[in-house]
Write a protein that binds this DNA or RNA. Structure first.
Lengths: 260, 260
DNA sequence: CAACACGTTGCCGCCGCGTCAAGGTCAACC
DNA sequence: GGTTGACCTTGACGCGGCGGCAACGTGTTG
């Protein structure tokens, strides 16, 4: 035999990878170290090229280098089918995931043409557009709250919770709900306006959603969000919120009692 | 304001991430560090929750954290649409890539039911099946060469190159091409059998593919593969190969001359 | 003899965190 | 009092698949 093999750069070019990749495979044990020439250079033979090409084919299919090592070790390919089948299932899952993200993206891109802050669901965006932009700190907090809650897929009735506060008729009837909350900034928690406003807030929730609201305010996720909101309020304002929620709960309980 | 904010674990649970993730976002500057309590604990407020939720929504869409930081910096979202559009294009490319891999996988999985060594294209597998398994070192080398060349999408006529060597008629006619190559192992390169076998090899290539073979043997990729094969052969055997290729080239040149 | 293209080993960087490690803090139970 | 246990703090390493750089040797060419 003529023993003129190849050097690492030639082999790499032949198979279409970098020399760094070839050495990487050596360290991982995917490709055995070939003999060395007198000067220390690696001297590659035909079988090295065969193995390297095999590794690359499997890698391009998407197998991890660990998996490839397992496949090469088992070498009588019966195990390969399992790996390939599993890989196919994994790729199918990835396809589904990507398709789902593209669907969400498509919605957002459509929405983006209508409204710049397009990271919230459509119905949230509609409510946000109606909230007064400046003037009331409470409105700001509601904006924040809605943005947060909007990030969960099921918004749990929060849009409906705040919708009534800004409906034109409510404003026209002189309830001025936001303004009255603002006025309680420095008030005492026992101020009579607290109970009064809490009742008015509750009255302006349409009946059919009071139950859902009471539930979503009470438990877990949304309850914790409201805790953060309360932390931004004065004591009287926070007390108003608490009473508001309590009234809603009582009404929900009553409704439930009547239905039994 | 009541200043009872949240600790990191509560905030993380609220938004649905790990505390490690929150701290990671702090280090990357995606989420500003909040005030600290007297004991050193981070004290999160409403705005932190809002930002964190926003970051998560963008991250779940597939934006990199760097991109998210850019989006948050520009903050008036007009730039967001570009990023989202680019992301969508990227996802589309990923979908295509995955689909292509699944198609190749499907072919391999079908082939796997027929032949265990299923990492080569179907037509290669067919040729490999026919090659004698033991006995001839030359056949072994051909197996290796075919496996390698099979890894490239266009196989460049290599299947056709070796096909004739094993066709039953050729064997029946007593040419014994492999056996005669084996017999040249210790021969002198000037042995008359060398030229004789080279001519016989060339004769057994169907005319219509001689051109393609001559071309694919001559240049780049396949030529380098053949260099590795020659390195495994004795001088006389390698000389046979060289003459074989030379004869093919001459015939191809003649054919081209006649066509002009 | 200098330039230049190749080879050698080895270590850092990437991304989005997970996972220890080695402590400090706080409420609840004995 | 002490002792769990659940939380918090900073810091460092790990992963996958290499890319890139450093610091050096080797071999061919002008």
């Amino acid at each position: 035999m003529l023993h003129a093999g190849m050097r690492i750069g030639e082999l790499a070019a032949l198979v279409g990878v970098s020399t760094r990749t070839v050495r990487h495979y050596h360290r991982l044990g995917l490709l055995p170290e070939p003999e060395r020439l007198a000067n220390g250079y690696r001297d590659y033979r035909l079988r090295d090229g065969v193995v390297l090409a095999r590794v690359r084919r499997l890698a391009e299919l998407g197998l991890s280098l660990d998996e490839i090592r397992d496949v090469l070790a088992d070498d009588r390919g019966r195990d390969l089918r399992e790996v390939l089948a599993e890989l196919d299932a994994d790729l199918a899952r990835q396809q589904d995931a990507i398709a789902a993200r593209r669907r969400r993206l498509a919605v957002l891109l459509d929405e983006a043409d209508l409204h710049p802050d397009s990271t919230v669901p459509p119905e949230m965006a509609a409510v946000l557009r109606e909230l007064p932009a400046g003037g009331s700190k409470l409105a700001e907090l509601d904006r924040a709250l809605l943005t947060m809650v909007g990030s969960k897929a099921e918004s749990g009735g929060m849009a409906e919770l705040f919708g009534p506060l800004i409906e034109p008729e409510a404003v026209a009837r002189g309830h001025r709900l936001y303004a009255r909350l603002d006025e309680l900034a420095d008030a005492d928690p026992r101020d009579p306006r607290v109970a009064e406003l809490a009742a008015d807030l509750a009255d302006h929730l349409p009946e059919e959603m009071a139950v859902a609201v009471a539930a979503s305010l009470g438990d877990g996720e949304n309850g914790d969000w409201l805790r953060l909101v309360s932390a931004e309020l004065s004591r009287a304002q926070a007390e108003t919120f608490r009473r508001f929620v309590r009234v809603l709960r009582e009404r929900a309980a009553n409704r439930e009692g009547r239905e039994r």
